[in-house]
Design a protein around this nucleic acid. Sequence first.
DNA 1: CTATTTATGTATTGAACGATACATAAATAA
DNA 2: TTATTTATGTATCGTTCAATACATAAATAG
Lengths: 203, 203
Amino acid sequence: MEKETRSRGRPRTFDETEVLDAATCLFWERGYEGTSIKDLIDAMGMSPPSVYAAFGSKEALYDRVLDRYAETFGQMLLRELHAEPDLKRAISALVQDWARLLTGGSHPKGCMISLGMPTHSPDQASIAQGVANRRAATRQMFHDRLEAGSDQLPAGTDLTALANYLAMVIAGMSMLARDGLDTAALLAVSDVAMVAWPQSPGG
Amino acid sequence: MEKETRSRGRPRTFDETEVLDAATCLFWERGYEGTSIKDLIDAMGMSPPSVYAAFGSKEALYDRVLDRYAETFGQMLLRELHAEPDLKRAISALVQDWARLLTGGSHPKGCMISLGMPTHSPDQASIAQGVANRRAATRQMFHDRLEAGSDQLPAGTDLTALANYLAMVIAGMSMLARDGLDTAALLAVSDVAMVAWPQSPGG
DNA sequence: CTATTTATGTATTGAACGATACATAAATAA
DNA sequence: TTATTTATGTATCGTTCAATACATAAATAG
């Protein structure tokens, strides 16, 4: 089974990675409802039939974009969570890195999933549910890591509350980033947030 | 100058408070972009020309709704912040009450302003800026209260970071509420959040 | 070559959007 | 009464929305 990249018909003139990056940037900045197909067409440099042939619909394209985003940043999150064995250090580093990530770089501010479709028309309930499900998965990921390192937490610590707290921090910091607060301001907030961390049993 | 309620032309058949409440509920639940004029017309029980004659435009109506909302809940927030002289108690009570407010009652979940238009098309930048300004005002309100009670905080406490932290908590809890977490879950999160509060000088 | 397959570009589609024109109804003012 | 003012109901306006029809272009298969 050799790599059969060459298919039969007329070859595509676009690079899938590039056009998905362009779509991601738009959805990230403007949200699902705030991004029109025309905006996407222009940014992706494609014609409408090509977009629909390649991705199906606006909703399917958004879902595709969300998947790529979740994979990219979710993997980064997971790697960082498990790179440091000391739980508090791991969480602290993660929160600080996200403070930098949410405010820096050449991409829109805030987390695309944390800020995604908090309000929406009933027509788009299922799309919004998809985003909400990804937030729930993130909370579960936090919970799993806390459980794995629960020996470094006081006995009886409410792991769910702590996981939800972390999700709250990411979401809240995302909103602050959207409002224009810079990296330094978010790092200061993340310092405050980490004070809430329970004392480890060893003091 | 007696109360001159009777004006000249044909009297209105709607109660302004009632229709604004209906509009608030819709905007709160669905957001600005997710709420259509048709939705509003139906919910308010008015005809399109009446809505436009009374409120000007969808944008102006949204702004009016935001003002009423900010007045209602902003005043509640302010009152609560100053009712309790002990700063930590005041903040703790406030966060707990908001945990209940964001998840309970007969209204949509989460704070309308905290969740308002984090993403939007460029066309609606000025409307989104209006919401962002109200969030900024809330952060300033927190800052003012902290400054007033700064004698109950360790010297050198970063008041801005602490105020931003509180705004982050409200915004993050709002998102959790939208995701379906109940009052108990949010109260547990608010307990974690308050652990981050600095020790007062008196121990 | 011809047939088949896939992608593209142009020009639209029907529906929903925010917002109004227009005629009518119901009040006060003179 | 008649004139004026304000609100209402119906029936749209032009625009933008997401999505396609259709003809054409560019590749492989036989």
